[in-house]
């Protein structure tokens, strides 16, 4: 019994439980399987199709992605002759890890009385934003290592987009910090017990959300891997399980950002369910995720220059407005 207790203690310790189980790896896997299934099913419903069906037919093909992953697992990893092989194989793995890093500092409520945060610091917002900016770099490296013109152009697009979404993303996140007078996400969430940030500063929420859509290449900003001219952008040369990984990265990134979005703007785990506040959080996250993938059925994609223009003209302006608004509100309250 002691050993079981020991294992349980280790597993339930926040620094293990958070990255591994919730809201970390296992939850992500389950959410991605459900999310991609839901994305395909919803799109199919809108587009007068059936969507995934044959794997686990009784449940409407819910395990389709698992089957696909298994297939990727057993497919041959093809590396092209002229690619930089080590970086080519390493960068998707590193990108995946880097995508998950922000989870260490993003609080996810509490479950069974355990506070779900792996690393509590008073600058967790800054840390989360900084860690989240690692992934695009590895996407750019992927395109370079592939030694393929389409991949290279896709990477360059990612680079162009990156500078146009990251500035409004960070500014609007920081405007929240100004509003709540803290860089600790836990403090920010606790501050929203009575009223959510989205109601106080909707500009920040809007520009943050659109920047997230842009950074995770959801429609209408699915430009990096725009298949009608770039095949699959930076991921063109990837096959088998590496392809599974690189296709998972944007979804994981979307999940991490959505978690942050809910914490910053939608009141995190409030209203509380005693001891199980994570459930409130995860429901909000799922709703936002579903909305983000639903955009695929509605919009075509913008052109690269138009997306960059939106980033700098609209989102940047909005994030500046949101900072001004935060400062005004702070000044008025004080």
């Amino acid at each position: 019994m002691e050993i079981v207790d020991l294992i349980l203690n280790i597993l339930l310790h926040p620094s293990i439980f958070v990255p591994l189980i919730f809201p970390g790896f296992i939850t992500i896997l389950i959410i991605i399987i459900l999310l991609i299934w839901a994305e395909r099913k919803v799109a199919a419903k809108i587009q007068m199709r059936i969507g995934p069906l044959y794997v686990t037919r009784r449940f409407g093909g819910i395990l389709q992605l698992l089957a696909d992953l298994l297939r990727y697992m057993f497919a041959e990893v093809i590396t092209s002759k002229d690619s930089d092989k080590f970086i080519f194989i390493a960068s998707p793995i590193v990108a995946l890890t880097a995508t998950l890093l922000p989870l260490a500092v993003i609080p996810a409520g509490s479950l069974l009385g355990i506070e779900l945060i792996a690393l509590r610091t008073n600058i967790s917002l800054l840390a989360a934003l900084a860690l989240s900016s690692l992934t695009p770099i590895f996407i750019i490296i992927m395109g370079w290592a592939s030694n393929n013109k389409f991949a290279l152009m896709g990477s360059l697009r990612e680079g162009h987009l990156m500078i146009s979404y990251e500035v409004p993303l960070y500014l609007s996140a920081l405007s929240v910090a100004i509003l709540h007078g803290s860089l600790d996400i836990v403090d920010i969430v606790n501050n929203q017990q009575r009223v959510w940030t989205v109601l106080i500063n909707p500009f920040a929420a809007f520009s943050f959300f659109i920047s997230v859509i842009m950074s995770t290449s959801r429609f209408p900003f699915e430009i990096t891997e725009s298949d009608s001219e770039l095949v699959a952008g930076p991921y063109t040369e990837y096959s088998s399980i590496l392809y599974g990984l690189v296709m998972g990265v944007p979804y994981m990134r979307l999940y991490v950002f959505t978690l942050l979005f809910v914490d910053l703007f939608l009141g995190g785990w409030y209203p509380l369910i005693d001891g199980f506040s994570s459930i409130t959080l995860i429901i909000k996250v799922l709703i936002i995720l579903l909305f983000s993938v639903f955009l695929r059925s509605v919009y075509p994609r913008y052109r690269l220059d138009q997306a960059i223009r939106i980033g700098w003209h609209i989102l940047f302006t909005l994030s500046l407005i949101s900072i001004t608004l935060s400062l005004l509100i702070i000044g008025w309250v004080m």
Binding site: A43, I46, Q47, M48, R49, F219, P220, E222, S226, S228, R296, S297, V298, Y299, P300, R301
Partner: peptide, 16 residues
């Protein structure tokens, strides 16, 4: 034309 600019819905609808 729809799928070329990324609208999967406008790919499926006219075809159906």
């Amino acid at each position: 034309a729809g799928i070329m600019i990324g609208s999967s819905t406008f790919y499926m609808w006219p075809f159906a």
